[in-house]
Write a protein that binds this DNA or RNA. Sequence first.
DNA 1: CCAAAAGTGTTGACCGTACACCCATGC
DNA 2: GCATGGGTGTACGGTCAACACTTTTGG
Lengths: 229, 229
Amino acid sequence: MMQEDFSRERLLLAVDCIVFGFDGEFLKVLLIKRGFEPEMGKWSLVGGFLQTNEVLEDAATRILSQYTGLSDIYMEQVATFSKIDRDPEDRIVSTAYYALIDIHKHSQKLSRQFSAQWFNIEDFPPLIFDHGEMVAAALKRLRTKAQTEPVGFELLPKKFTMRQLQTLYEAIWNVTLDKRNFSSKIRSFNFLEKLNEKDKSTSRKGAFLFRFDAEEYDKQERSRTTLNL
Amino acid sequence: MMQEDFSRERLLLAVDCIVFGFDGEFLKVLLIKRGFEPEMGKWSLVGGFLQTNEVLEDAATRILSQYTGLSDIYMEQVATFSKIDRDPEDRIVSTAYYALIDIHKHSQKLSRQFSAQWFNIEDFPPLIFDHGEMVAAALKRLRTKAQTEPVGFELLPKKFTMRQLQTLYEAIWNVTLDKRNFSSKIRSFNFLEKLNEKDKSTSRKGAFLFRFDAEEYDKQERSRTTLNL
DNA sequence: CCAAAAGTGTTGACCGTACACCCATGC
DNA sequence: GCATGGGTGTACGGTCAACACTTTTGG
């Protein structure tokens, strides 16, 4: 950093979280109806200010826990947004994080408290400030990430069916996949453990449940390029 | 952003630039020897503070121009670094940008003024603060980016030989490629214009020069997934 | 016994990779 | 005429994509 020529003006640094969930059919994003000015009553991402004694990751974790009741969540920094008038009341720069959560673990109590709601990623209301851009950037990152790392499992319960997993990836990329190809491709990675349990909620025959085997995945860390589902 | 519960403490936001260049053989990074405290005399990235009337991109552009004399440069935001004590003297959060420049356009005068030097990306001295992490993150991003978009051309002169292009990609990924496969792959994209000019500086026969045809590339924007060189 | 979802294998097309020889020219 | 780097094509194997029928079982 160059310290001779320019002034050192302090500003506010915020953190906004794009919380993704999956309801079994669509990829969802969590939005809250703002209960304070400016833009009270409009939809927005969950966010807060970086405190001087915390790092951005901690702020994102804290905010996520405040609004969803969840901890130990997969998160990734997306980008930092700095348009001068992105907040009309003050100069606020904001770093966006996306989080992947199991939608069913999301606290109903907190949801009511903050007027939070899940929206389909393809169809959500206009957001305040530049939050719409943030969602777009986060979605792009998620899509890229899902191509090289099995992040999808963060959005599902521990045990899931092959069909649920496929529907999830179809929702992430907004495509349709062939179930035979999907299944054999996924199974070829050898990081899914097939359980001796069936989910019978969606069919008479019942579908086998699987579990992501993180240990096996880590063992393979070398020699991997893309997942290419 | 949630404004009820937490204080709004202001802090300094810096921008640090990872400037990549290519000398025909190795991928390089531009470092300066700090002429001011703290850590005077140590190697560091070029950087500066975000001013209240500019966005991060503008700050990065300004800093790049100050230190290299160049404008109209390809840049991309990498990430924001916020460790509490990353700067021992003050709480400073910093957003890293990487820039790709044609190494030969880099101003010698400014280089002397700031004691700037190019280092091989695989072998550079210890850097102050978390600048080493920033370089690592930037390199990772560049590698990923180069897989899906033809950013490499930013590092070369307007006209270049097939061999130079190949060497560049070999330097970016630290691999060796087969020149027949590389050439036919690259040419199959149809975004290189073969000129009726030869560079005779490296061989008696001379090597044809090519130019990146951005217009043709843009026309193909659809239907493209990866470059996969 | 039937409706509804689960589960499974084969084939052809395409792409990536390995590999070796001739060409043009300046000295 | 020879040394040096430039330029090109083919054959193999692996991966991706398209495709349809049988199984299970609750009602």
